[in-house]
Design a protein around this nucleic acid. Structure first.
Lengths: 366, 366
DNA sequence: GTCCATGCTT
DNA sequence: AAGCATGGAC
C-alpha cells in the first residue's frame, strides 16, 4: 500500500509535461524515501531520473517498496483533470494493478477520483554514472532554454566548452555558426570547485582530479561541511584566474528548492543563507579580494555561476537538450555538470524533488 | 568593411518577419547613408524597399559601398537568436563572404556571436516609380491589417477608391461582397493637397490635376510651407466637400518616426504640432465651421487622413496587401499612395527607417 | 482578470 | 502557413 498526498498537482503536471515525450512508460519506484522514476528515453540515448522526496508530500506512506508501472501519457491525461489548487492523493494497493488518484478542492465541495491501470514494466538496467564533474554551470532555466533553442535553429549539435573565460555554447550549421559565451555572473572569476586534494595540482585544470574525491559530492547530495580552512593556500593555482571555491556547490537543492514553488521573494532565503555561509567564507574571501561572499546566491540575469575543475569540451545533440530544457518551468535555475567524455548531467532542483537528465556526448564528428 | 551597431534587434526582427515571405534573398546595399534593401518579391509582382538610416544606428561605419547578399530566412533565424534587449552589431569585411553578428547583453555577461554566409545576388533591375500621387491615405496599421484581412476572406482583389467621400475598400466575392468606407478623421472633409494651381478647377476632384504639380510633393519629402492664405477663396470649390489643405502631408516621416520607437505618449508631439498649425488654419476652419484644427494629427481609431488630388479607383491583389500589412508592427500608421494606373505605394515609416511596398494594380478584370 | 504577443502544432 | 495554446504585460 502506498499513499501520497500532495498540496497541488502542479509539480506533477510539469514533470509529466517535461518527460512525456522522452519516455512513454516508466516505473515509479516507491519506497519510504519517496517516489523515484528512472528510465531511458524511448530511443535509449538519454536517461531521465525524477525524485520526489517523501518529505515534500503532505502525507506519505509506503508500507513496502513497490514499483508503479505507468503509461505516462495516461497519467498526464489523468493528472490534467486536477485543478491546480486541488490536493492530489495517489494510492495503490499491493494486490491491484491500479493507481487511484483523488483530487479534492480546497473547500471539499468537489472530490474527483480517477483509477488508472498500471502496467508491468521491466525496469531498465540503469547504470547511472556517478561521477564527480570537472565543471558545473548554473544558469537560469530560461537562458538555457533560450540558448539551446536558438542554436537548434542553426545546427544539430552544440559544443559546450567550459574554460576560465566562462561557458561557451557553439553550434555550426549550414548557413550560420553561432557561439554564445556566458561569463561568470557579476564579472567574477571562474571559481574552482573545492574537491579533496585534486586542486593541489599545479596544472589541475587540465588533469583528471575528479576520481580522487568520489563520494564527496555525490551528484548534488553531499552536505556542505566546514572544510573551508584546509585549502586556503591553494589560491591562484591555475595562473591566477581560477580560484578555489569553498564548498558552495554542495547545496543546490536547498537553494533552488523554493525558487520556483516558494512564493516568497527570491531574496528571502538567500539572505539568511548568505549570512550563514558568509561567516565561513569571510577569511577566504577577504584574502582573495572576492567581490562576492556567496556566489551560489548569484542569480542575476544572463550570468552563470561556473565551477571549473578542468576545462571541458563536449558535444551534444541539441534535440535532447531542447527536450530537457522544457523542465525549466520546474525551477528557476538549471545545473549542467560535465566531465570530458562522460554523459552530461542536466539537473533541475525544485521544491521537494529533483529531475535529472543524462546525455552521452557525441564522439568524434558523429 | 562595414560595421553597424544597433540598440536593439527588434526593428530588424520585425522587418525580416514582414518581408521574408515576400523575398527569399536580397542584397543589403550599404553605403555611408545607411543600409538599403530593394528587391522584387519572389513572384516578381511586388517590390519591397527597406531603408535604415545610418543615423539610426548607435555606431555606423561603411568604408565603401558594398552589397551584402543575404538569405533572408537564414538572417531571420540568426537575428532571432538575439534577445530583444541585446545590442546588435553587424560586421562584414570586404574580403570575406561572411556577415558577423554580435549580440551583447546590456550587462555584458552574455555575448553571442554568429557568422552567416553571404551570397552573391544579382541585383534586380529595379525601376522604382517616382510618381507624385493623386491620393494619399494615412490610416492606422491595425486598421489596414484588419481591412485587408477581412476582405481577403471574401475575394481575391480589393478595389480602392478615394473620393471626396473618403476611401473605400471594396471586395467582391462569390458569396459576399464587402465595402469598407473610411471617412476623413474626425469627420473633417477630405483635404485637398495644395498643389500648384490644380485645385483651382471647379471640378478638380474628378479631373487630372495631378500632372501640374510634379516635384511639389515628391513622395513624402516635401516641406510644409506657409501657403495657406493664397487659396482661401477656394473653399467649397467642389460642392463644399473638398477643401484646400496646407501642406500638412509634408512630414509623415517625422510624425511617424517616434510613434513606434519613441517611448513618449502618443499625444506628446501631436499637441505641439496641433497648436502650431492651428494658427495657420484658424481663419479657414472658422469660416467653414470645421471641428478640427489639424487633421494630420488625428490618429483616433477608425479614421483616416486623406489627401486627394484626384479621384482614384484601383484594384489590387489582396494576397499581397495582406503580406504588406504585416509590417504594421513597425509603425502605428501606414501611408497608401495611389494614382490611377500606377503601382500603389504602401509605406511604413518608423524610427530610423522606412519600408515601402509597390504593387501594380490589376487592369480590367484580370 | 483581460488582452496581446510569442511559440508550438497541425 | 494558419490556428491553438501558453506565458507575460497592463
Amino acid at each position: 500500500m502506498i499513499e501520497a498526498k500532495m498540496e497541488s498537482p502542479v509539480v506533477l503536471k510539469k514533470i509529466l509535461d517535461a518527460i512525456k515525450e522522452l519516455v512513454s512508460d516508466a516505473n515509479f519506484e516507491c519506497n519510504e524515501e519517496g517516489l523515484k522514476l528512472q528510465a531511458m528515453d524511448n530511443s535509449h540515448v538519454a536517461l531521465v531520473a525524477v525524485e520526489l522526496n517523501a518529505e515534500s508530500f503532505m502525507k506519505y506512506r509506503c508500507d513496502r517498496p513497490m514499483p508503479l508501472g505507468v503509461n505516462l501519457a495516461s497519467l498526464t491525461k489523468v493528472i490534467k483533470c486536477a485543478k491546480d489548487d486541488d490536493t492530489v492523493t495517489l494510492r495503490a494497493t499491493d494486490d491491484q494493478d491500479i493507481l487511484h488518484l483523488t483530487y479534492e478542492a480546497k473547500n471539499t465541495d468537489r472530490i474527483a477520483e480517477y483509477d488508472m491501470k498500471l502496467m508491468d514494466i521491466d525496469a531498465d538496467a540503469l547504470g547511472i554514472p556517478e561521477t564527480d564533474y570537472d565543471a558545473t554551470v548554473k544558469l537560469s532555466s530560461g537562458e538555457f532554454l533560450r540558448i539551446v533553442r536558438d542554436l537548434s535553429g542553426l545546427g544539430e549539435s552544440v559544443r559546450i566548452e567550459v574554460t576560465k573565460e566562462g561557458v561557451r555554447f557553439i553550434s555550426e550549421g549550414e548557413s550560420a555558426n553561432g557561439s554564445i559565451l556566458l561569463k561568470q555572473s557579476g564579472g567574477g572569476k571562474i571559481e574552482r570547485v573545492r574537491q579533496g586534494n585534486g586542486v593541489k595540482k599545479e596544472d589541475g585544470a587540465d588533469d583528471d582530479d575528479d576520481d580522487e574525491d568520489s563520494g564527496k559530492k555525490k551528484a548534488v547530495k553531499v552536505k556542505k561541511e566546514a572544510r573551508d580552512d584546509e585549502d586556503e593556500e591553494m589560491e591562484e593555482d591555475d595562473g591566477g584566474s581560477i580560484q578555489e571555491e569553498s564548498g558552495s556547490e554542495a547545496e543546490p537543492e536547498e537553494e533552488d528548492a523554493d525558487e520556483e514553488e516558494g512564493s516568497g521573494s527570491k531574496k528571502r532565503k538567500r539572505s539568511s543563507k548568505a549570512s550563514a555561509s558568509a561567516k565561513k567564507k569571510t577569511k577566504t574571501a577577504a584574502k582573495k579580494g572576492k567581490k562576492k561572499a556567496d556566489d551560489d546566491d548569484e542569480e542575476e540575469e544572463g550570468g552563470a555561476t561556473i565551477h571549473m575543475n578542468q576545462h571541458v569540451n563536449l558535444t551534444f545533440s541539441l534535440k535532447y537538450l531542447v527536450n530537457f530544457a522544457k523542465s525549466g518551468s520546474l525551477s528557476k535555475n538549471v545545473h549542467l555538470k560535465m566531465s570530458n567524455e562522460v554523459p552530461l548531467l542536466v539537473q533541475f532542483v525544485f521544491g521537494g524533488g529533483l529531475i535529472s537528465y543524462y546525455l552521452a556526448p557525441k564522439i568524434g564528428d558523429e
